[in-house]
Every structure is written in C-alpha cells, then in structure tokens.
Write a protein that binds this DNA or RNA. Structure first.
Lengths: 142, 142
DNA sequence: GTACTTCTTCAAGTTAACTTGAGGTCAAGC
DNA sequence: GCTTGACCTCAAGTTAACTTGAAGAAGTAC
C-alpha cells in the first residue's frame, strides 16, 4: 500500500506540484493523508488528472469540472445541460476541422499573407458561418 | 463610400467597441480614418473579425494571429509550423469528439457522479491516451 | 544528532484578453 | 451657438489558472 506522494504524482503525471496543491485547494483532487507534511494521494489521482486535462481541452473551467466531480452534494448537472455542452463541442469540432484544413492548405499555398489566399478564405468562411464569437483560449505550453 | 464607424462595427459584429480598440492597438485590425474622433473602418473588417474569432477557437493567441496577418514584414510562418498546428488541431478534435460522446452518454446515464460511470470513464480513457496536458481554456461568455 | 533536501503554508506576482472609469472632445440636432 | 450623447485616451482593474518566493518543518542520510 505504497501511496504516491506529491512528488511521485508530479513526476508521473507531468503536472507540477504547485498545480497539484492548487487543484486540491480548488477541490479537483483530494490527498488522502500525509507523511510528515508531505501529501499522499490515492493511485486513482492519475485518472482524475487525465480527466481534468481532457475536460480543460473541452473548454470547461476548473470550477465546472469541480462541479462534475461533485461528491454527494448533488449539484445536479442536468441532462439538458450536458447535451447542450455536447452540441457546443460538436460545433467547435466542425470549426476546428475547417481550420485544420485551412492551415494545411496555407502550408502548401504561396499567397503573400496566409489569410489573403482565396482558398483559405473560402474554408474559413465556411467555418465561420453562424458564429463570430470565440471564447476559447490556449495558454502557453509548459 | 459610407465607411462603418466603430459603433456600426460593434453592432454588426457583436464585438464590443472596447475590444475593437484593443484589437487595433494589438495590430489585429486597422481603422482607415476618423470622423472627428470616431474611428472609421473598411468594410472588410468584418471578415477580419470572423477570422480572428475562428483562429481563437482554434487556440491561437492574439499575438499569433497578428503575426499571420503580417502585412509585409514577412515574419514567415513556415509550412512545417502550419502543418504542425494542423496536426495539433486534429489531436484536439479527436479528444473533443470523445468528450462529446462522453457527455452525451453522461446525459443519458444515471451514475451518482458523472465521472464515476464506467462507460464514461472508458470513453475518456480512450480520449486521454497519449496526452495528459491540457492548455486550453474558455472564458465566460459576454 | 546535525545537515540536507524537499516538502509545507500563505501571500503576492504573472499572463492573456479584455473591461471599466475618469476626464476630455467633437459632430449633430435644436 | 449651445447642449447632448457617443466617442476619445490612458491608466487601472478583472478573471482564470497558475507560478514564485519567503520562511519554516520534517523525514532521511550520514
């Protein structure tokens, strides 16, 4: 019963210890005890972290993720809301696919500025139809 | 030759005037003159804004987007980089698709906490394979 | 049992992408 | 020609998600 401590988790998951502490504070993960001062985690923390990472990719905030992990409190994420989120994701997926196509074309094309190429523009126009709002942001890689 | 002023652009695009000013400051859009103090824009600013929104969905930072719009400076976004971006996007797309499936299942399933459902877990595990890093974040809607 | 390392807490700092507020200006309507 | 309302600038504030730093404690190696 060798529980991983924070350093083990950080090493094996790639998530910095500072982030693990931060996540614990936010209720996203829990430590199951201490060895001295040092936090000990259950082995399933790795699944949790993977899930958290995925949910973040999908555009959920940490707060929303914490709610989904809700222990007993029943903050009921209802069916409608989940289905709506799925729909939203599908829309995003379609846009990303168009952008991916656009980028690949731009990589091959010789227009002065990529966004000037008519083919690229056409792809983008298709992707943009219906939505000019873009609330997703990527942070720099560590 | 009735150029749209900042209020027109804000109204028709849904992008707040403060954001338009901010984007101009960052070099993402340009105003072509003033009527009094009031900025005037070229009609193509709407395309620009749509493109910016799309690029943001795809996870580009404003800085990266500004570079792609690069006028003459030739800061050469090279083919390899674009292709790499496209690959990255494709990976993201696969994950989002899995999450979308997962969400739809969760919406139908009656597990106590969504992330406890074994079917959901399985979907997520598939999506998570190979990547525990998640540098995308969504901001609140206006 | 002393040194060393690595953890601990807590507060403050960072970054991206905006938003808000104070004080000022100008075209347009009356 | 004066009032009004919407824009202007510039600085400072906001939010999410972390990171960094200072000061201290505890298990581990010698």
């Amino acid at each position: 019963m060798k529980l991983p401590d924070i350093a083990d988790v950080a090493r094996r998951s790639g998530v910095p210890a500072s982030t693990l502490r931060f996540y614990e504070e936010k209720g996203l993960i829990v430590s199951v005890g201490r060895r001295g001062l040092r936090r000990l985690f259950d082995a399933d923390v790795f699944d949790r972290l993977a899930l958290i990472a995925l949910a973040r990719v999908a555009g959920f905030t940490l707060e929303e993720i914490a709610l989904m992990f809700a222990p007993e409190g029943r903050p009921r994420i209802d069916r409608k809301l989940l289905a709506a989120k799925a729909d939203e994701l599908d829309g995003t997926i379609r846009k990303l696919a168009a952008i991916s196509d656009g980028l690949r074309h731009a990589a091959a094309c010789r227009a002065p500025s990529h966004f000037e190429c008519p083919t690229f523009r056409k792809l983008m126009a298709r992707a943009a139809s219906g939505a000019i709002r873009a609330p997703v942001k990527k942070r720099k890689r560590r």
